[in-house]
Simulated scan of single mutants.
Amino acid sequence: MESKSDKLIIFDLDETLIHANGAELGYPAHFMFDAYYVYERPGVRSFLSDIARHFTIGIWSSASDDYVAEIVDHIMPATIEPLVVWGRSKCTMKRDYEYDTYYYEKRLDKLKKKGFRLEQILIVDDSPEKARTNYGNAVYIKEFTGDGNDKELQFLFNYLLTFKTTANVRTVEKRGWRNFSS
């Protein structure tokens, strides 16, 4: 078997791996959480199983900690033990002065205590503002809104594999990653 990379990939939850909605979308939800209908991005479980064979993985969302833990319990294959399952309590609240709003930012330097340098960490998220200070680490994925025909994880898998032996993930240009051809 091929060896596992020394890289860590952090995945966002909402609109990246799942979509939670207060109303059904016209087809049955995969499961319910509280008053939310939760839809898994097509192929998410096999994607997580496959990517975990190559990388250490974690989940980090700006949603409440209990929500994150419950959703991860539903979607994470039993054979995978994520390095972290973090929610809002691990985020840093930031203010957008232009719009006078607040948002939660995921500061990847918090993962140093887990033994990973920033040069070894990728974050996959649909919200650029949540990884603003980690620009060189971020792979921005198309927002998932429940489309049962979504194929984003298929494209993402092949792209992420290109980082297995990269010395410093921050030096790789990630804009336009969908144009990558294997």
Rank of each mutant, 00 (worst) to 15 (best):
E15N: 14
N168C: 01
K94H: 03
D96T: 13
E105T: 05
R88C: 08
N168G: 00
G136Y: 10
G87V: 08
G148R: 12
E105S: 08
D147H: 08
G22R: 10
P82K: 07
R45V: 08
H19Q: 00
W86N: 05
G176I: 11
A63K: 15
I9V: 13
S3I: 10
I10L: 15
P28C: 13
L108G: 05
E152Q: 10
F144W: 00
C91W: 01
R95K: 15
F163A: 03
T56Y: 03
H54P: 05
N134L: 09
A131H: 04
T79A: 14
G148H: 05
S61I: 03
N137F: 13
L161M: 05
A23T: 09
A29L: 06
V85G: 06
Y37I: 06
E70G: 09
R95H: 14
L122C: 06
S5W: 00
L156C: 14
L17Q: 09
H74W: 05
F144L: 05
S49H: 04
Y99K: 15
T16K: 05
R95T: 15
F31Y: 13
K151H: 07
R45C: 06
L13D: 12
K142H: 07
L83K: 09
L156H: 08
K151N: 10
F163S: 01
F144V: 06
A138D: 00
A23R: 09
Q154T: 11
V139C: 09
L83C: 07
V44P: 04
I10T: 09
V72Q: 10
E105C: 09
L161P: 06
G26D: 09
S61D: 03
S89W: 10
S5G: 05
R95V: 15
D100M: 11
L118R: 11
N179M: 10
H74K: 13
R170W: 02
L122A: 10
N134Y: 04
R45S: 08
T162D: 06
I10V: 15
R41K: 02
A52H: 04
